[in-house]
Design a protein around this nucleic acid. Structure first.
Lengths: 236, 236
DNA sequence: GATGACAAGATTGTCAACAAAAATGTTCCC
DNA sequence: GGGAACATTTTTGTTGACAATCTTGTCATC
């Protein structure tokens, strides 16, 4: 894994970053909410930030847009997506389709090394939680779901989970009560316990409940639309 | 719906095609197997085919690559993907995760208009089958799954199903017995019957079985890898 | 005659300049 | 002073040319 945390720096390497790396970095930045919904992603700024040419950035933004993580407004630029209520429902619906199955597969296929890595991950998650490292806690708790998809050894599912976890972070940023973390880590512990017992059905069921809990903690009713609701914000 | 069938033509419209349209057109061409796996997609040829600039084509190819429908070899160009056995398994695994749930949702949410449209679609599918219009039959039978995702009214799932159906077409092209169609349309009829009865659980179960049937009719054992296995092909 | 180096051609990747559009700031008129 | 028209500046979109790389064909050498 990468030694994260200093992601806003320029590149010091000789090699240039590829589109996929830039996309991954922006995904990360969104996951731990350094890039809130609606943030303008100007090409020039990103060129400087990543030390690459404009074309590279342009392609990266296109890829991000195809995952609905950024919105591309013609002649206006790229903005971090701010999901609508309907989109939020769609994301959770899709997660409920996929991730219980991912958890089931992962529970069936986890090697001893996978279990050890998961345990280590949960330890980090706990530390971040109790050490009041909120940003780390958010990132790790989102990444738990990604790690599960890696253990499940299905590249298609992995890609989908990455996208959905990232979009969930945006959704939490908009509809979440302030201060609420990405997941309750106790849920993660329970899921891991099912892994230990090789109880894949329980793992799937717990994942389903976990996602439902998460969704219920959001305020998906009557929240205003997205970015430029200044008129909605300032009317009283 | 579009009046398909003459998709290899140039554009006569005044408006230029957007990336999304080009991507959709290439998806279609792959679905009804006009573009077999491994086909070279040279930029110049595509520029002429769609009547757009090279940048547009380049972006379209990038999007297709991000969906793993084309493979982008650095400095060598773009090729229609030829999925490996492992990738084929992943695709079916993912379809089994998603599409039964899609079928369930669609059965719950289908309006009368949706049911009528589905019935009409099945009629077309039958006609194509019995009229020996193999290409139409393949396209329609793949499209049935896409229509279901549309009825399910979940944009995330719709995007995934489109990708997975397209990749399945490539998989059938590689691992399918020659002449086998994309799906057995009887299965589709059964699924639709469950829709009529508002029996969403049965719809989900039938979809699961349908996908399993499809997978079992392929030869996912001991088949050589992908494109340039000339050494494998010509050794005896 | 086979093998390797070399050169020509074609294709992809990158960059810089230019055109177009939007956002912002200014001026003028009522 | 408020507002609309206009000018400026910034940012995005597109085109074309150039550089790098790979493929293919040729030729010399062993």
């Amino acid at each position: 894994m990468n030694s994260l945390g200093n992601a806003a720096e320029q590149e010091i390497r000789d090699e240039e970053l590829g589109e996929e790396e830039i996309v991954a970095r922006i995904f990360e930045a969104i996951i731990d909410q350094r890039l809130p919904p609606g943030t303008k992603l100007s090409e020039a700024a990103l060129c400087e930030a990543f030390g690459v040419g404009r074309m590279r950035i342009r392609q990266s933004l296109l890829l991000l847009a195809s995952r609905e993580v950024v919105e591309l407004q013609p002649n206006r630029g790229a903005f971090v997506a701010s999901p609508s209520v309907d989109q939020a429902r769609e994301v959770f619906e899709a997660r409920l389709m996929i991730e219980p199955n991912v958890a089931r597969l992962a529970a069936e296929r986890a090697t001893d090394a996978d279990l050890a890595a998961l345990e280590q991950h949960l330890r980090l998650e706990h530390d971040a939680h109790h050490g009041n490292k909120r940003r780390d806690a958010i990132r790790l708790s989102g990444q738990f779901h990604v790690v599960l998809a890696e253990v499940a050894a299905n590249a298609v599912a992995l890609r989908m989970v990455k996208e959905l976890v990232t979009r969930t972070s945006l959704i939490i940023g908009i509809f979440g009560s302030p201060g609420v973390s990405n997941c309750r880590d106790d849920d993660h512990d329970d899921i891991f316990a099912a892994f230990r017992n090789r109880d894949s059905e329980t793992a799937a069921r717990l994942m389903s409940e976990h996602l439902r809990h998460l969704q219920e903690h959001l305020e998906l009713n009557g929240h205003a639309e997205g970015t430029s609701d200044l008129v909605a914000i300032f009317r009283r």
